[in-house]
Structures are given as structure tokens and as C-alpha cells.
Design a protein around this nucleic acid. Structure first.
Lengths: 196, 196
DNA sequence: GTCTATATTATGATAGAC
DNA sequence: GTCTATCATAATATAGAC
């Protein structure tokens, strides 16, 4: 039984580059995932959207789950440089605020991504099952929150949900990136008790 | 009996009662929707979960979408009394805060519900397409927010997302209802600028 | 009301021609 | 690398027996 191509079975999550055809598949998949959910998106739909056949999709990724993994990995990988910068920074509050700005920036820039990454049941399961994803999320939250505890956790959950929700809300699709980013950053800092 | 065939084609959303078999199907469906998403849940899974056959499910609801509609209607219907109470209340800020407390109460009580209602692509589409759902959401937000405008909308989106996220977060599953409710209410009031 | 059996369509996936 | 053709399986849905 095919355990799936395991891009990150042992190693750490990292920024990944894909070939042009693979990138086209991933872009189309992401778009469809955001609209119909992962389970609601068939390989047929992805193939049609790219303008190729199902078999051609299978040449690039030989299972649907591989596409989901690649989409998730590519998205989170984009945050790796920001995370490493924050971890290397001595000034802890500053590192925290820098990373927060980066995370919000990415959420606003790739709005469609957020619905899938944060709330799709298939992706949520994937994140919980693959250790590299888990380790990455741990690192991210360690910088953003410091220690753990129920109160901090509630804040964190509210924060990530607040950002995600605002960013993917249909009625806010027309709000320009700058406005949204500014407002989100202000409110997020308030929620985290950061006072810049 | 057949009260809810086309439950909301023309009329307003209201609290609905279902027969025992229908209720069993809806409960099972909701549970599965929360875990696997609507698209990731088959009628087979629902039937197996109830302990009946697919055909028996079709006797109660003659299409999968009918189940989704019924689940959504039943959930939102539970908020109707609270909404009507708030609309009848003269003291506007008080009405707003009362409704907020009710909404948070329901979110905390039926945590699994939230993921499906707020974030499942199928349900989101349903809410957008069926006028009774739209009208209900309009009424809800009118009481909670007063007027509309980008700034208020951003706050609203962040608020609903913050509540939803906190309530459905796996790491917060063990936090007891009272703690969660109290913390959520405090932070929500802060976000809305309510000062009770 | 619930069952078995079945029709129909779509799914994920593979083999092999070009 | 991309195609056509095809596979087995599972999906939604229906008909009809009990």
C-alpha cells in the first residue's frame, strides 16, 4: 500500500520549490479547496481547472493526499524564514511582534489559503498526524505566546481565529490589503497585550 | 410529521421540532459533519452511525442536501427566541449584550456545531443561497452591530471568528464551559467596545 | 418504516499508446 | 509528459418486498 510520497517524514518543514507543471496543479487545487473544501474537490475538477487530464495530474502527484500535503507544506514553508528570523532575535517582545506582522501579512496576501489551512477537516487531520507540521506549529506558537496555559491558549485560539475569519470573510473581500492589515494588526496587538 | 419538507422556502426561520428517527439522523450527521466535513460525510456513514441502512435514511430525508438544510435550520432556529427577545428590548446596548451572551452560550454548549455552521464550504454556500438564512443572519448582525461599515464589519468578522475558533479548538476541548464562556464574553465585549 | 437489490454516476487510481 | 481507455470502488438515489 502506497504510504504516499513523504516529503517531510523525517526532516523539518522548509521552503519548497516546485516545477512549473506541479505549481500549476497546486495553484488550481488551492483555489478549488478554498471554494469547495478538500473533500468537495475531485481530481477531475483540478485537472479541468488546469486544462489537462486526470492522468496528467497523477503524473505530478500520484495520490490526492500528496496534493494536500504539498499545498500545506508550500504554504507553511513560506513562513519558515520569518520564524527563523524571530527565533534568532534576542529582543523577545520585538521578535513576537515582528512574527505577528509577518503572519498577518501572509494571511492577508493569500486570503484563500486561510480557509483551507485553518479549517478544512482534511488539512486539520493532516497537521495533527504529520510530526513535521506539528513541530512547526509548536515553534510558531512558542514565539508568539511564550509559555502555555489555558488563558494564553484561549487568547491564541481567539487570535488565530479572529485573523483567519476577518481575512476570509466574503463581505470583506473588497477591503484593500493595507486597511485590513492595519486594522488586524492593531486589534491583534490589543488581544495579545503587546504595546508597541 | 412532514412539517419540514420545504421548511424555509418562503417563510421565516423558526424553531423546528423533528420526530425521533429524524432527530437521530440529524444528530449523527452533525457529529460526522464536524469531524469530516459535509462533503467528507457520506449517507453510508450517517446510516452506519445511526445503525440503519441508507434506504432508511432516504426515507427521512430524500436528499443529502435536505439533511444539511435541516441541521443548519435546527441549529439557527435555537437562536430565534433570543433574537426576538433582543429585538423587542428597548434598551439597545442591553439588548446587544444579552444577545451576545446568548450566542456565546450556544457556541460553547454546542461546540461541534460551530465548525460546520461557520466554516464548512457546503453550509456557507447554503447560507448564502437561501433567503431565510440570509434574513436571519441580517437580523442577528443588526442587533449585534447596529449600523454597517467596513470598520464595524471587520470587528464583526473578527468577533465571530474569535469565538468560533476558541470554542472549536482541539487544545481547548478540556477547558470547562464556565471558564471558556467567561473569558470569551470578556474579550468579546472588549472587541465590541461594550462596557458593562 | 425498514429492508434488499439495483441503477447510475463519479471517484481515485493504473496501464499502455504516443 | 500527456494522452485514451479502463479498473474497482463508493457515491447518491430509487424500486419494490416485507
Amino acid at each position: 500500500m502506497e504510504t504516499a510520497r513523504q516529503p517531510l517524514a523525517d526532516g523539518e518543514l522548509r521552503s519548497v520549490e516546485h516545477s512549473a507543471p506541479r505549481t500549476r496543479v497546486l495553484d488550481a487545487a488551492l483555489e478549488l479547496f478554498a471554494e469547495f473544501g478538500v473533500s468537495g474537490t475531485s481530481l477531475q475538477m483540478i485537472a479541468a481547472s488546469v486544462g489537462i487530464t486526470k492522468a496528467a495530474v497523477y503524473y505530478q502527484f500520484h495520490a490526492k493526499e500528496d496534493i494536500v500535503i504539498a499545498v500545506t507544506e508550500r504554504a507553511l514553508g513560506r513562513l519558515v524564514p520569518a520564524l527563523e528570523r524571530a527565533e534568532a532575535q534576542d529582543d523577545v517582545p520585538q521578535a513576537r511582534d515582528d512574527l505577528l506582522v509577518d503572519v498577518i501579512g501572509m494571511a492577508v496576501r493569500d486570503r484563500r489559503l486561510v480557509r483551507t489551512l485553518q479549517f478544512d477537516p482534511v488539512v486539520v487531520r493532516l497537521l495533527a498526524e504529520h510530526p513535521p507540521f506539528q513541530r512547526f506549529m509548536d515553534r510558531l506558537y512558542r514565539v508568539l505566546l511564550g509559555e502555555t496555559g489555558d488563558d494564553v491558549l484561549i487568547e491564541a485560539a481567539m487570535l488565530s481565529g479572529a485573523i483567519s475569519s476577518a481575512v476570509m470573510h466574503p463581505l470583506l473581500a473588497d477591503v484593500d490589503d493595507d486597511t485590513l492589515r492595519t486594522r488586524l494588526t492593531d486589534l491583534s496587538r490589543r488581544l495579545l497585550g503587546l504595546t508597541p
